[in-house]
Simulated assay, not measured.
Amino acid sequence: EIAERDAPANPVQLLRSGKRAEDIFPLGQPVPGGLWMGSRPHLPDSLPVIGASLSRPGLWYNFGHGDSGFGLGPLSGRLLADLITERDPGLDILPLSPLRFLA
């Protein structure tokens, strides 16, 4: 569910999707402990940070993917590898720079 950080937990979407998954594929008994819900952190501009640290030579950043980390992981890993090895990443990575927050 996409909701405000301090909104009360609403498990309706999770319960419905669990029921649909069970209809398609029997999942067996639920894991003990109940449902866990929490907010996902997002950067102010909703873009990940990919690039070199200004203050620590050799330190590279690749974080802040929010809800899309699993899907963007391979691409951001490739971008980071290109940056580290000084290859052309094939796109403008300036909007992802950690330096964008210094202004």
Results as ranks from 00 to 15, higher is better:
G33D: 03
D45Y: 06
L80Y: 02
N10Y: 05
G90V: 06
P44T: 12
A52Y: 01
F70P: 00
L99W: 06
G73R: 00
I24P: 00
S76L: 06
R78N: 09
I93S: 11
I84A: 03
T85I: 07
V31L: 14
F70G: 00
G51Y: 00
R87E: 05
A9Y: 04
D45G: 10
P95N: 07
I50K: 12
R100G: 04
P30L: 13
F63M: 05
G33Y: 05
P26D: 06
L59H: 01
L75H: 12
R40G: 09
P44A: 14
S55V: 05
I93W: 02
D82V: 00
E86A: 15
V49L: 13
L79D: 01
A9G: 05
L47Q: 13
R78K: 15
R16I: 12
S46L: 14
R56V: 12
L102I: 11
G28H: 00
P89M: 11
R100T: 03
D67H: 14
R87P: 01
S39M: 02
L94Q: 13
S46G: 09
W60G: 07
N62P: 00
L14C: 14
G90K: 07
L59V: 10
G69S: 03
Q29W: 03
H42C: 08
P95M: 09
E22L: 06
A103S: 14
L59K: 01
L59W: 03
V31R: 13
G34N: 09
R56N: 08
H42L: 12
G73C: 11
I24R: 10
P8L: 13
S68I: 06
D23M: 14
H42R: 10
L102H: 13
N10I: 06
A7P: 07
W36S: 08
L91R: 10
P89G: 09
G77P: 00
I84K: 02
V12I: 11
A9N: 11
G66I: 01
E4F: 13
P48I: 06
L94I: 10
E4N: 15
I2M: 12
A7N: 04
D23T: 13
D45P: 08
E86P: 05
P57H: 05
R16W: 07
A21Y: 03
E22K: 04
P41S: 14
L94N: 10
L99E: 15
L72Y: 01
M37S: 12
L80W: 03
G28W: 01
D92P: 03
T85F: 07
V49N: 08
G34W: 04
I93Y: 04
P48Q: 04
G38H: 03
N62C: 12
H42P: 05
P32H: 12
L14S: 15
S97G: 04
E86T: 10
D88Q: 12
R100C: 02
P32G: 13
Q13G: 09
D6C: 10
I84F: 02
M37L: 10
G71Q: 15
F25Y: 08
G34F: 04
L35S: 09
P11Y: 07
S97N: 04
